[in-house]
Amino acid sequence: MIPLTWDIVARGLGEIGRLLGIVAVIVVVLEALAYLILHRLLKYKYSLPFMLLLPALVGVMALIIYPFGFNIYLAFSNMNMFRFKDFSVGLSYGITNFLDVFRLPVLQKVTFFQLLGRTILWTVVNVVCHVLGGLGLAILLNRPMRGKGVYRTLLVVPWALPQVISALAWRGEFHFQYGFVNLMLERLGLRPVPWLSDPRWAFVAVVLVNVWLGIPFMMVVLLGGLQSISQEYYDAAQIDGASGWQQFRSITMPLLKPVLTPAVILGVVWTFNNFNVIYLVTRGGPMEGTDLLVTSMFKAVFEFYRYGFGAAYAMVIFVFLFIFSAVYLRLSGGFKGAWES
């Protein structure tokens, strides 16, 4: 056992202090440089915003650009278990890798298109449930009522719990004999369900877990949106005799849209790329029946040692998600709220 001593505490605080100092210095230096070059030298009109932007930009670029480039490099290599340190890079390897994504099973049985279909189903079901559940709860909470704070607090518990813990807890709760899900079903006089040994039920189980995890985020976002809608609109609508549903459709929904669109996009991206829930609850099994694109990519690299292939596969997933978001932005009218303000 390593005891927590003052030494360790002091070392931690010291290192953090140093880090903050260094970051502050770097920020100041970068901004000063930007100021000198853009403002003094080039007399650029937008020198101030770029100055403000520079530190974050440099950080994000450094952490994204090099690794991203490295990944593309690997995608054009034949790196695998037998060629781990002495792999070679070439266009033909890249073409093979990218073609393999589509023509061969990604893992043992399951193919890219099966995984794609499943991932889309997973994303749609989850996000729809998140939005509906979140919206329902937000509407219920958006009124003066007793215990509102308590409800809101308890309802965000799934979001606040570390995912590693809730996922493992749920794994236990889906146990055929000892999990509370089946115990509850039996008390209700229903047949127990083989949650973790039947691939379809396992998929239902992971969806349930993720719905449970994701509702609080949507609830909080949408509650924020609802609260920013002025009461006057509803008062006016009532004078005109609009029903509750009409008010919802013609006031709530349009005014909620600027909040809803980015929330849905983020929700889709996070759900699409969700790794923890699947990996910790079912590990993608049984029969690879709950693997999604992301988990199968991770497995291809770290369990099947297919580094080159895995890198190509990651690019395909990324591009797919990118196209989806671009299309969704076009169709939904995009981030009007974000661009115009």
Binding site: S197, D198, P199, F304, R306
Partner: peptide, 28 residues
């Protein structure tokens, strides 16, 4: 897993195992 879920006959499972293993080794 498929056999133990009652979703596949042992005969089919054995065949599928062999195919999957051969394929994986080819890839590897």
């Amino acid at each position: 897993e498929a056999v133990m879920a009652g979703k596949m006959s042992p005969k089919d499972a054995a065949k599928a195992m062999q195919e999957a293993a051969e394929k994986a080794i080819r890839e590897m």
